[in-house]
Amino acid sequence: MGQQVPLVDYLVLGDRPHLVARQCDACGARFFDRRNACASCAQTEFTGVDVPTEGELRTFTIVAYAAPGVPVPFVAGVVDCDGTSVRGNVINVTPDPEHVRTGMKVQLATYVVGTDDEGTEAVGFGFEPVEVD
């Protein structure tokens, strides 16, 4: 089996897949990409932090019509991971308004996006409903 690479550099694979962010040392604002200075307070020191893997779906849309090559329908949303807002798809769920609701509890899950010509798998992430028994 070939190796795996994350779809984006802020996804950490391994036994416990999770997202990482750059946190402003001064005000705590978090960013998923590089910044020269904090967009919130303009200070320039950042430290890497892990983002909680569970959260609440704050909003979503069910995209039925997208750019060529993007499979539809899919659920796009914003998950509040204990104070850090994360963009992601809601996965492992039927994509209709009866099965997806704002306020629902979700958790990070990974899946294989594709395989390149050298056998390397790209692994993406989404958020799946937390089973409540």
Binding site: D33, N89, A122
Partner: peptide, 21 residues
């Protein structure tokens, strides 16, 4: 790019379409 993406992220990490946003 800025997220070190190895493949297209539109549709995989949320949506970039205006109706969806």
């Amino acid at each position: 790019g800025r997220y070190g993406a190895v493949a297209t992220i539109d549709g995989r990490i949320g949506t970039e379409t205006m109706p969806g946003v």
